[in-house]
Design a protein around this nucleic acid. Structure first.
Lengths: 140, 140
DNA sequence: CAAGATGTAACAAAAATTGTTACAACAAAA
DNA sequence: TTTTGTTGTAACAATTTTTGTTACATCTTG
């Protein structure tokens, strides 16, 4: 019942790029050593963020940079970019359709789960990356 | 990033009890055959719900019944009863503390994640089991 | 061409979730 | 009191998901 840590890693990655783009090469290796995971994980995250238009990654020479200002990037953008299987709620897969409850449980729950998911998404949309870069800036 | 299916199973279980308490024995076996999982899973869920004061379970003779009316049971009650590790967001566990970003990532993200979680909880709290029993009643 | 990156596939390892078996403890009915 | 059917749990097995690693083709610039 968790948001895969890829989401937190992606945020960490973006903050790293924000902070160090003009200081050192923002390569997957350097980011990986800040995040504490294998560089391949970072390359996947970078790839996701790139496909979502959030960053640009230089092939060959290496390095990543923000494509938009932090105030134009929301946590929902990052979430959608990195978490593709975003069905927050798991479901038992074999309810008994011969039982009235089993037959209808899915249709009854789907709507509620969807509405909760919408609220969740809205909350993410209302938090900008700039909120986080501001915090980082005050701390270092 | 998922809520374990135990949550959906618990809701299914409660709806089953609501619907069939006076019709058949609401034993773990009968519930299990409606949900489509092993009876032991149901017994665990029943145990969770019982500990939370949501239902009563008869030892020996068997069967479960609601302890409160559906309008007094919220989805948050059910969620808390069944999902104990409710840290919605995962975190990479070894950020590099020698990097300014790695050092501060946790404190920066924690607050945001907590606020999202609060919104999530509130949404769950606003949905009563009676909303679901009403729907089930119209469907069967 | 050499050096150092990214992009991915393929696979390995670890962790979390789910399923199963087994059995003690229990309550009611025969 | 014995039988029957049940809950409560522990222990373990199986499965699925997540995370980590290796390997290598491809790319860009010097």
């Amino acid at each position: 019942m968790k948001v895969a840590s890829k989401f937190a890693i992606a945020i960490h990655t973006l903050l790293f790029i924000y902070k160090f783009d003009n200081v050192m090469k923002t390569s997957s290796n350097n980011i990986a050593s800040s995040v504490g995971v294998n560089p391949v994980i970072i390359r996947e995250v970078l790839s996701d963020l790139k496909n979502a238009g959030i960053i640009a990654v230089k092939l060959g020479t290496g390095g990543a940079s923000l494509n938009k200002s932090p105030s134009e990037i929301t946590l929902l953008d990052i979430y959608k970019a990195t978490i593709k299987e975003d069905n927050l709620f798991s479901f038992h897969k074999a309810p008994n359709v011969n039982c009235p409850v089993g037959k209808n449980i899915h249709s009854v729950l789907d709507k509620e789960f969807e509405s909760i998911k919408n609220t969740f998404d809205n909350e993410l949309k209302n938090i900008k990356l700039s909120t986080l870069t501001d915090k980082i800036d005050t701390l270092c």
